[in-house]
Design a protein around this nucleic acid. Structure first.
Length: 668
DNA sequence: GTAGGGTTAG
């Protein structure tokens, strides 16, 4: 049986040191003779460094740090000064290509060698600073080279190297180092070690028994007496949240007995990760009751909850709350706010947040392009993409995916294919599986099923079942029974218990009026005990969420809702609505099929909203599955006869109904 | 010379 404690205490060995290698290129290669400490390289000016310049080294961007570094080296070229400079170089964010901070660090490293600062046996502090610099740049192997050359290593040295491997996603090497550290005399894991190690376990969920590893490290935390430390506790919470172990998350939190804001923030985010939105909100209220002022991180999590659940009123309240407590702008929080408004169906509010944002980054643009695509504004998405490039920001793979998705939602196949075919040459981004999946979805959805199958065969990736399901859905939409059956058979083999596969094939038969086959599939599902997801819709009204299933009569004012729906159906029929019984999935006669469409959940939700809100108000309705074609038609007429704007969010996108038309132009 | 929490796709 696996024993965490035994595992952690096992005699794992530190990977053997690598052979010595040349240090990073030095700009002073010609002057490579090490100089004793304090022997300064000749310089042009010796202006004394000011207090403000020293401060800038540790607090500001790498370009300011570089300037300050030059001044400081000229002024006080001591090992201690170099350590401070490496700290400045480490503070900027890592980048995959050689960044200014990396080149600055490499220059400093060379200077330190040239000046002989690393020849001294007692160079632990400076070497650790250099090691930490490479670790921060996601270059753990370079950090390891510095580590291997050190005569003495402190706990700080070990911690920095463990962090380097953990943050680069190299969990096993981080763990091997941790085991080695435990065996060293005079060095013991401390409150810095565990956060570094735990972040790596949470980050890398592939391979090994992640939960057992986490539990093993947790046991070591307790053994070290650090389980009450807020930094260690927050790391433990996040690690357990990443592995989905909510009970362990709660146990750690309950044991903490802390008022530390980051621990509360981690707890809220853990609930969000585990899809426990109500518990997250409750924790937020408890946090406020403890007089802890929330920071940006907390609001980001709350906006994500309100968006995912389409709780607009709650979202507005949280937004107002954040305005009272947060004075400094933060890109991530603002981006979360933008997405919250979009997810709640308020694309105009999302625009307002985007336009008023002082710090606009790649994710801001990506989020807004995504929102515009989901709300059927492909032209604006393209304009924003151009604006993004004009501003100097470089689009990434998500940008192109979101833009492709905007074309897909609008059925702009030609534009989508043009972007896809030119993305490597023009934007320098190689299409990933997701880009292929989006294009295949676009082709199939538009009726080009043969072309989509050809693309699946030709793409350099193996198609996964969700992608096949998308094409099967398109076969249902376009009545391609031959291809649909082939895909369904393959899917039944791979996923015999996935209900959607059966439902989609059943829908193909139903839409072609082949009721015998439809019933056969239905009885096969029943015999096999396979249950599909029940469709439901919901609407926020009077600070409450009202949920409706199909033919649902559970609502307290159900009778009034049904009466209103019957009245509305009469009105829209008079205006020209004709029920589309091809969307009914039962074989019973035409009248019964019409009846079965009448009380679909999205129609009930609209009838309730119409009853419960002042005439003329916009109604925002959500559905957990794709909107039914007949309901889509009915909604257009609802908007016509009631004069209301209706925003319907389904599991894929938004439909804006107004004056008898939908923003999707009947393409979805 | 070292540490924890948040945002974008499908």
């Amino acid at each position: 049986m696996f024993c965490p404690l035994v595992w952690l205490c096992s005699a794992g060995s530190l990977p053997s040191p690598m052979p010595p290698i040349p240090l990073p290129p030095t700009p002073c290669a010609a002057d490579s003779t090490p100089r004793p400490a304090g022997d300064a390289v000749p310089h042009r000016s010796r202006k004394p460094i000011t207090r403000r310049q020293r401060c800038r080294i540790t607090t500001t961007s790498s370009s300011s740090a570089l300037y300050a570094a030059r001044v400081l080296i000229a002024d006080a070229p001591t090992p201690r000064a170099f350590s401070a400079l490496f700290k400045a170089a480490s503070s900027s964010s890592p980048s995959p290509s050689p960044s200014p901070s990396q080149s600055l660090g490499a220059q400093l490293h060379a200077q330190a060698v040239v000046r002989g600062f690393l020849g001294d046996v007692d160079n632990t502090i400076l070497s650790t600073a250099i090691l930490n610099f490479y670790a921060s740049c996601r270059e753990p192997d370079l950090a390891r080279r510095v580590f291997d050359r050190m005569a003495r290593r402190s706990a700080v040295t070990w911690n920095a190297l463990i962090k380097g491997y953990a943050q680069a996603g190299r969990r096993d090497e981080a763990l091997a180092l941790f085991r080695c550290m435990r065996r060293q005399d005079g060095v013991a894991p401390d409150k810095y070690t565990f956060p570094a190690l735990l972040s790596g376990i949470g980050r890398n969920r592939s391979g090994g028994c992640v939960q057992e590893l986490g539990a093993a490290v947790h046991a070591q935390v307790v053994k070290s007496g650090l389980d009450k430390d807020p930094f260690v506790g927050a790391s433990l919470l996040s690690m357990y949240a990443a592995t989905g172990a909510l009970e362990d998350v709660k146990a750690v939190f309950d044991d903490m007995d802390t008022l530390d804001p980051v621990v509360w923030s981690s707890m809220i985010s853990a609930y969000v990760n585990c899809k426990e939105e109500e518990a997250a909100l409750l924790t937020f209220y408890k946090m406020l009751c403890q007089d802890i002022t929330p920071r940006q991180f907390v609001y980001s999590s709350l906006f994500a909850i309100c968006g995912s659940m389409s709780m607009l009123e709650m979202g507005r309240q949280v937004h107002a709350h954040s305005l009272k407590n947060i004075t400094d702008n933060d890109a991530a929080m603002t981006n979360a706010l933008l997405t919250m408004y979009s997810d709640c169906g308020c694309i105009d509010d999302a625009w307002r947040v985007f336009d008023s944002n002082d710090i606009v980054d790649v994710i801001s643009y990506n989020s807004m392009i995504l929102a515009l695509g989901q709300h059927a504004h492909p032209k604006e998405a393209v304009e924003l993409f151009k604006r993004m490039k004009f501003s100097g920001l470089i689009p990434d793979e998500v940008t192109l995916l979101n833009l492709l998705s905007a074309f897909n939602h609008a059925g702009l196949v030609h534009e989508g294919l043009h972007l896809f075919n030119s993305m490597l040459d023009i934007e320098g981004i190689k299409p990933s599986y997701q880009h292929y999946a989006c294009v295949i979805d676009m082709l199939a959805r538009s009726g080009e099923i043969e072309e989509s199958m050809k693309t699946i065969k030709e793409m350099p990736f193996e198609a996964e079942t969700p992608l096949w399901r998308i094409v099967l859905g398109a076969c249902s939409k376009h009545g391609d029974i031959e291809t649909g059956m082939k895909i369904a058979e393959m899917l039944f083999e791979k996923e015999p218990y996935e209900p959607t596969n059966y439902i989609l094939l059943g829908n193909i038969y139903a839409r072609l009026g082949r009721w015998t086959e439809t019933e056969n599939i239905r009885s096969l599902m029943e015999k096999s005990g396979i249950d599909g997801d029940d469709a439901f819709s919901w609407i926020e009204m009077g600070q409450r969420t009202h949920r409706f299933g199909v033919d649902d009569r559970a609502h307290p004012i159900s009778e009034e809702i049904y009466r209103n729906l019957d009245r509305l159906m009469g009105s829209i029929k008079a205006a020209g609505y004709v029920p589309d019984t091809s969307f009914a999935t039962h074989s019973t006669g035409k009248n019964r099929r019409e009846e079965s469409l009448r009380y679909h959940c999205e129609k009930l939700a609209f009838a309730f909203g119409d009853l419960a809100s002042p005439s003329g108000d916009t109604l925002r309705i959500m559905k957990n599955l794709r909107v039914c074609g007949d309901c889509h038609s009915a909604y257009k007429y609802f908007s016509l006869v009631t004069g209301r704007k209706i925003v319907l969010r389904d599991n894929h996108r938004f439909h804006h109904f107004y004056k008898g038309a939908c923003s999707c132009r009947d393409y979805w």
